[in-house]
Amino acid sequence: MPGMDSEFDRDTAVTLREPGVYDAELSAGWTIIQAVNGGYLLALLGRALGDALPHPHPFTISAHYLTPSVPGPAVVRTETVRTGRTLSTGQASLFQYAEDGTEVERIRVLASYGDLDALPDDVRTTAKPPAIPPREHCLGPSDGPAPIPGSSAITERLDIKLDPTTLGWAVGAPSGKGEMRAWFGLADGRDPDPLSLLLTVDALPPTSFELGLTGWTPTVELTTHIRCRPAPGPLRVSITTRNLAGGFLEEDAEVWDSADRLVAQSRQLARAPRG
């Protein structure tokens, strides 16, 4: 079990107030451009559901982002929908407070939880790990990509090394391909686990940057599948967008662990930036 010496674990902590109700504090350390990062929020909700449900690990979790979240106090309300022998299903909503004290719903999720350690070892797949150069040949924020307007506090908590072929946007020459690939870890060295994978799928720069668009790309809906417990060590993340139309785009993410296993998949619908 990860310890609370990790900033990720401290900042996704929830405190049980009463059955089904958890208090939380959204940290300013996970903000990007204008708002708290959606993957960080998903991990926080995932932690609350993991406490509320009888099974420990998220298998699939779908989140609808209703209003932007901001640093500060929050309340998570959970409900157990169904409990079975191998899967349990629950829903959760995160609320913050308006200036007049009323609750404003930020995110609503529906999730099924199980036990990853009880799954069979049989794997039949045509999926292959992304072709990313060795980590020492990839580039991170300290290597000088162009800054993006607004807060970039989250980059200080992540250890991301981007494939140079997906970094054209940083030098004013986006490829137009809608691809983003990177080595990924947490800056404090915490090893990945099923919960942190919920952050991983939404922690890279948006593919819209490589499509020549800059600015905030707010998530409308994000569905994540956790396939197995990741091995210790760095992850490889590949995100692609095939279709931007009507002001919206999809991002399909794959996360691979150090043992060359596909450990997480996701798809999100996001509003395209206007840049």
Rank of each mutant, 00 (worst) to 15 (best):
G212D: 08
P133Y: 09
P130G: 11
E254Y: 06
L116F: 08
D143G: 00
V237S: 00
R157E: 05
P205S: 13
M180D: 03
G114R: 04
D122H: 15
L244H: 12
T223V: 09
G247I: 07
Y113C: 05
E254M: 11
H137W: 13
G168Y: 05
G168I: 00
F184H: 02
D188H: 00
L116C: 10
T217A: 12
S238N: 09
A127K: 11
A170R: 00
Y113E: 09
G189H: 04
S151W: 01
I154E: 01
A245F: 11
P194E: 09
I148L: 13
S258L: 07
A187E: 10
T166M: 04
R229M: 10
K161R: 14
P145G: 03
L158F: 08
V220Y: 05
F209A: 07
D163Q: 02
T155W: 14
H137C: 15
A173R: 06
A182M: 05
S238K: 01
K128R: 15
G144F: 07
R190T: 11
R135L: 12
D252E: 13
C138E: 11
G144Q: 02
G172Y: 07
E136Y: 14
G233L: 05
L204E: 00
E250H: 09
C138A: 05
V201W: 05
V123L: 13
G246I: 06
L162Y: 14
G246K: 08
E156G: 14
D115V: 12
P174V: 01
V171D: 10
T240L: 12
K161S: 13
P130Q: 03
P234G: 11
P147T: 01
P120H: 04
C138W: 02
V220M: 09
L195Q: 06
P147L: 02
G215C: 06
F184A: 05
T165Y: 11
R124K: 15
C228I: 08
F209I: 03
G150L: 05
L186R: 03
L158N: 03
S151Y: 03
R124G: 15
P130F: 10
A173G: 09
L116P: 01
V255N: 08
D143P: 01
G140C: 02
T223L: 06
T165Q: 13
R135V: 15
T126S: 14
A231F: 10
R229D: 15
A131N: 15
E251R: 07
G247Y: 09
T125M: 09
V220C: 08
